[in-house]
Amino acid sequence: MDGRALFHEPIGGRPALAAVGRRGVVSAAEDRNDGLEDGATLILAVAAGDRAAFALLFTHYAPRVKTYLLRRGAGVQRAEELAQEALLSVWRKAGQFDPLRASPGAWIFTIARNLGVDDHRRARPVADALADDPSAAPEPPAAADARLDAAERDQRLREAVRALPADQLAVVRLSFFSDKPHAEIAAELGVPLGTVKSRLRLAFVRLRAGLEDFR
């Protein structure tokens, strides 16, 4: 399929989007914050070279990755370039995505994070050391049922994050989007360092509890 031709046509609901499975066709217009519906299926389609699926992922995730990079302190122009680069990495690395290991959002997050880190220090991100671990290699494609379980797990985690008490969510957010030392995070929130630590610990307890049945 010619990417340029595709760009000039409406994408949503294209019957040619063969990879969109049992959960129906995804509308490109959707931008609910529930993750992209069936993002995992789209990434697997991208792994098979489906440009229409890539266009849907791009439309949904590039603007969110851009926001993430802006919050990490990238300039507007750099955030745009890195968001481009992140989604191109999604195209190149789609074959490594394993929906049982990570949600589409988590997988794309790690790609964006590594680019952000790399851009910051111009060196190889540490997380690549983990990717070399043989036990981290992708497993065979998941059965549909297991995939639905994974999608439910991802949804539960999103809900658990949203349900965090405001003080815990603030600590989680600051931990993710500022590279300030924890002592400065504590100062910013006007609480002792020990409180920052205990809030983060409590947040993780809640997030784990939200996933209890999936362990």
Partner: peptide, 18 residues
């Protein structure tokens, strides 16, 4: 788990126009 949380935060990001 922390990366999954990062994914959930990313999904909840308001989009910035490209």
């Amino acid at each position: 788990m922390a990366e999954a949380t990062g994914g959930a935060l990313l999904d909840d990001m308001p989009p910035t126009e490209m």
